[in-house]
Design a protein around this nucleic acid. Structure first.
Lengths: 203, 203
DNA sequence: CTTCAAAAATGAGTCAATTCATATTTACCC
DNA sequence: GGGTAAATATGAATTGACTCATTTTTGAAG
């Protein structure tokens, strides 16, 4: 039953996220006032707060679109993983890291991470945590598949190792977005080296 | 040459940090207004901003005191490390994790981490980064010593492995402060398991 | 087509961090 | 002492996120 009210709500929500995405990308998260998002979306300030708990919550909605694309891209590695385990993990992390700045600036990532740490129990924080969790599980699923294929030893704990690998990559990603001067090739190489160290020891 | 001006400056600074530490611990970082810190320290709001760039910068000054104590406590492990490598790393991380909440609440840690990510190039961000770096180097120094003693294999890259271990511990610590319900024993056990996995593979 | 209650939008008002023009204090010279 | 410039303290004004009492819109009933 899509009444007028329902349709208007969806439309307003879309306009808010689209305006926010455009403005954040151009001026950065901190460079954009809620008032401006409201103007561009053709709604009032109060309306944005009827849809989202905070300015950060709007950002997470934008980030979420990107992360879901990344996860979807990552599935292609799971479908047909490289034979050598370390190469498979590299391929997945390569996708994560290269896609991460397609639509989001480093400043936007910093803001998103920052707020998810400050308010882990807010809608924003939980949502960001779920995105992280989905990514981590994708890494674990990759390891599980590699294990089934015999690419990694049967003694490996897929959950623990997957989490360590993901955390290590994620920490490097955090350092990457903290350092404006670092380019994507540098972080990919750093992650590759760390994963290699881990996988060689363990696989 | 300690003129009156010099002494007053040092004294005011001390009063600001002491007031902030006390208030943050009691009411949390977000629960304290700069105005209140100013009142308690017997200075004006503007004066605090002559000494610190932001409210977060004041927090980092408080955090810094704590981290320096932690590093100093960690040195005792370096002086006389347990024979088995995994035990030595555990002992060091145990100290880090247990000391971390002596004077700082989880909420204060969240605020400090949050802001160091949001503004990595600010005074606050660089200062926090330096603290992290000192801790990471302490881990590497421990590994170097273990290597010299023959507790870990000579093929291990101390810098890379040390960073992975530190990052892994740090990520667990981040999850710990994000989750108010988690107690310190739980995070210590989780870190122990992860370090064990790494050290067993590598050592 | 009215009437009305629930749902949603609105924007002026509140709150707290930060700034900055002004006032005060210190150090130094004579 | 007294005068003066540099350093420092001050708090009223600014800014922007967020709230909430009020107004407007929608959907359903008669």
């Amino acid at each position: 039953m899509t009444g007028l009210r329902q349709r208007q709500k969806i439309d307003r929500d879309r306009r808010i996220v689209e305006a926010a995405a455009r403005l954040f990308r151009e001026f950065g998260f901190e460079g954009v006032k809620i008032e401006t998002i409201a103007e561009q979306a053709g709604v009032s300030v109060g309306t944005i707060y009827n849809y989202y708990e905070s300015k950060g919550d709007v950002l997470i909605a934008v980030v979420s679109l990107e992360v879901n694309e990344v996860i979807s891209a990552g599935e292609s590695v799971l479908t047909r993983p490289p034979a050598r385990a370390a190469d498979a993990v590299d391929a997945l992390f390569d996708i994560y890291l290269r896609h991460s700045l397609h639509y989001l600036s480093k400043e936007m990532w910093r803001a998103a991470m920052s707020m998810s740490i400050l308010h882990p129990e807010s809608r924003l924080g939980r949502h960001y945590g779920q995105l992280d969790e989905k990514l981590c599980q994708q890494v674990c699923r990759l390891l599980a598949k590699l294990k089934r294929q015999g690419s990694i030893g049967g003694a490996i704990d897929v959950e623990v190792t997957g989490r360590i690998l993901f955390n290590t990559m994620n920490m490097s990603f955090m350092n990457f977005v903290k350092e404006d001067a670092m380019d994507v090739e540098t972080v990919i190489e750093a992650v590759r080296r760390q994963s290699e160290t881990m996988m060689t020891l363990g696989g």
